[in-house]
């Protein structure tokens, strides 16, 4: 980088604005983006003889630029990630309205609450085998007791025994897979629609 641009307060102020608005993205990605933007300004002001202001104008508003980077980055990462946190970050961008974002996030969280409940049941079964199980009470609804509260249905019969452990583990994994794929489908659909609308 040239000393002139490196020290230009307008460039530094612009890049600081982008950096602040990119907060939350991986640090190495932020540094990579800023390095590229700086390189762009250096090329425009040096090689092409543009003024600093014109060079910064070509990049647009720093906050809007950072928003575009963040949304694209987080949605693309979410589409191919197995991490619930990354998928959750992607979901935060995958709707036009705030209500849509909240609904999608809530649905995703609901899926994961069920996943964790199933896995908790598998673990709990190991410590309280007589109190956790799939209880069937004739003439009543199916009762799935997951906590060590000792409230087994009166006259109920436990159906799965130790099979409850692999069953809830597998079901939990299946539900997690379905929840992730559904969220990723939602993100992909939103991104493609957005691209079509912008096109």
């Amino acid at each position: 980088m040239t000393t002139t641009v490196g020290l230009d307060p307008k460039v530094e102020s612009y890049l600081a604005g982008v950096r602040a608005a990119l907060r939350g993205m991986p640090k190495h990605e932020i540094e990579d983006i800023l390095r590229e933007l700086r390189s762009h300004v250096v090329d425009l002001t040096g090689k092409e003889g543009s003024g600093v202001e014109a060079a910064l104008q070509s990049l647009g508003d720093p906050v809007e630029l950072a928003k575009t980077y963040r949304a694209e980055n987080q949605m693309v990462r979410a589409e191919c990630s197995g991490s619930p946190l990354i998928i959750l970050q992607g979901l935060r961008h995958a709707s036009r309205s705030r209500l849509g974002r909240v609904a999608a996030t809530a649905l995703y969280a609901f899926g994961y609450i069920n996943v964790l409940t199933l896995w908790a049941a598998a673990i709990d079964k190991l410590f309280a085998p007589s109190r956790v199980g799939l209880w069937y009470t004739p003439g009543d609804i199916w009762s799935f007791t997951l906590v060590r509260n000792g409230n087994q249905p009166a006259g109920g019969r436990e159906l799965l025994g130790w099979w409850l452990v692999p069953a809830t583990l597998v079901l939990g994994w299946g539900l997690r897979y379905a929840t992730d794929r559904l969220a990723q489908w939602w993100i992909r659909r939103y991104r493609h629609r957005k691209e079509l609308q912008e096109a």
């Binding site: 590229e36 090689k47 070509s58 694209e72």
Partner: peptide, 28 residues
């Protein structure tokens, strides 16, 4: 430029492009 750089970043994140930093002769 504000359109093309985020697009390049997205295509890279999708695995369609790869990038490398090269030191130019002029020093940046």
């Amino acid at each position: 430029a504000g359109t093309v750089y985020p697009l390049l970043a997205r295509l890279k994140a999708e695995g369609l492009l790869e990038s490398e930093w090269v030191e130019a002769e002029v020093g940046h």
